[in-house]
Design a binder for these strands. Sequence first.
DNA 1: AAAGAGATGGTCT
DNA 2: GACCATCTCTTTT
Length: 200
Amino acid sequence: MSPEVSAGVPADRIPPLARERLLGDAPDVAPRLLNTLLVAGGVTGRIVEVEAYTSDDPASHSARGVTSRNRSMFARAGTLYVYLSYGIHHCANVVTGSPGDGQAVLIRSVEVWSGLETVRRRRGPRPEGQLTNGPGKVCQAFGIAARDDGVDLLDAASPIRLLDDGTPPPVAPGCGTRIGISRGVDRPWRWWVPQGAAPG
DNA sequence: AAAGAGATGGTCT
DNA sequence: GACCATCTCTTTT
C-alpha cells in the first residue's frame, strides 16, 4: 500500500526526520516534535500532543536506572520505546538525547492524514475526534505494540517511521502539566498544537 | 457534563 | 502485594 499525506505525496517520498532534531533534553525536543509525521501500520498522521520524560524525573520509567522494561529508553535518539500501560494499552515514545540518558517523548495525540479506514477498523465506530486523542488510542490506531519496542524510527526500512514533510512546529505551542501521573506533577512538560493553528 | 469504577497484566518493592 | 505515562462504560448531577 502507499500511504499518502494531505498534499497527495506518498509517505515513501517524504524524508525521515533528521536525527539531529532529536538530540537534546526531552523537554527541549518535545515541542519540536509537534507537526512531524508518524507512519505505521498503513496509517500516516501528524503528531499534535507530546510529553517529555527524563531520568531526573520521578514520573519517568527511567528514573531508577535501566531495567528490562525501559532498556530501549536508554538507547540512541530516534529509538522507539513501547511499554504496556495498565496491562491493557500500549504507549509509544521517541527516545531523545544521547545513549545512556534515558530521555523520551511520549506521543499523546495524532491527527490522522491517511489510512483513516484502517484506523476506524482498529478503533471501532467512534466520533472522529476520539480516534487518536490519547497515547493508548494512538498505538491501537497505528497498530503499534510491544514487538515494536526498540525499532529505529529514522530508518527508512523500519515498520514505524518519523518523517519530516517540512511543516515546522507551531510557533506558540500549548504547554501544561502532564496527564495521568502521580509524581513530578508540576513539571510543565506537555505540549500540543493549538487547535486551528495554521501549519507554518 | 462530570464523576466513578472496572478491566487487566507487567514491573518493581 | 502495590502501583501504574489509560480507556471505556456506567452512574449521578
